[in-house]
Amino acid sequence: MPDLYPYSAEADPIKNEHDSYNVYVNDNYIGNKILFSQKENIQDVSDYLNNKGFYNFQAEVEGDHYRLQMTELDQGELVIDELHSYLGLH
């Protein structure tokens, strides 16, 4: 039987869907960040937070997860509120 799908999606350099990351703050799921253009990248989330005055966090990409760990835990709720606005969740 012939292979009806000779090309895998992984081999196709053209994206059929937008990249999407699950965003977490202190291990709590906040929402998804969808990258709509090739100019966007997941580090834009950290840049946004820096522009809002938040610097005390560690950011890590793990597969399709973007994890922010706050070094000052009392800022977690403020960061979550900012991310809700940034991700369009409000």
Rank of each mutant, 00 (worst) to 15 (best):
Ser37Ile: 04
Asn41Asp: 14
Ile34Asn: 11
Tyr66His: 07
Pro13Tyr: 03
Tyr5Pro: 00
Ile42Ser: 04
Asn50Glu: 09
Leu78Trp: 00
Asn26Lys: 00
Asp12Pro: 00
Pro13Arg: 06
Met1Phe: 13
Asn26Cys: 08
Asp27Arg: 12
Asn28Phe: 03
Ile34Thr: 15
Asp64Arg: 09
Gly76Ser: 14
Tyr5Trp: 05
Leu87Glu: 10
Ser20Gly: 10
His84Gln: 14
Thr71Ile: 02
Leu73Trp: 04
Met70Thr: 15
His65Val: 02
Gly76Ile: 00
Val23Asp: 12
Gln43Glu: 13
Lys39Tyr: 12
Glu72Asn: 15
Leu83Lys: 13
Ile34Val: 15
Leu78Tyr: 04
Gly76Trp: 00
Asp19Ala: 10
Asp44Pro: 02
Ile80Met: 13
Ala59Leu: 00
Asp81Phe: 06
Glu17Ala: 09
Asn56His: 12
Asn50Lys: 14
Phe57Lys: 07
Asn26Pro: 01
Ser46Ala: 15
Asn26Ala: 12
Asp44Gly: 13
Glu62Met: 05
Tyr48Cys: 09
Val61Met: 04
Lys39Arg: 05
Ser8Cys: 02
Ser37Val: 04
Ala59Thr: 08
Gln43Tyr: 07
Gln43Asp: 11
His65Pro: 00
Gln38Val: 03
Met70Val: 05
Asn32Glu: 15
Leu83Gln: 11
His18Phe: 05
Val25Trp: 08
Gly31Trp: 00
Gln38Ala: 08
Asp74Ser: 14
Leu49Glu: 14
Lys39Gly: 01
His90Gly: 06
Asp19Pro: 04
Ser46Tyr: 03
Asn51His: 11
Leu73Asn: 11
Leu73Cys: 00
Tyr66Leu: 06
Leu89Glu: 03
Lys15Arg: 14
Asn32Gly: 02
Gln38Leu: 05
Tyr29Cys: 04
Gln69Arg: 10
Lys52Ala: 11
Ala9Gly: 02
Gln43Asn: 08
Phe36Trp: 13
Ile30Gln: 07
Ala9Cys: 07
Gly53Asn: 12
Asn28Pro: 00
Tyr21Arg: 13
Ala11Trp: 01
Gln75Asn: 13
Met70Lys: 02
Ala59Val: 02
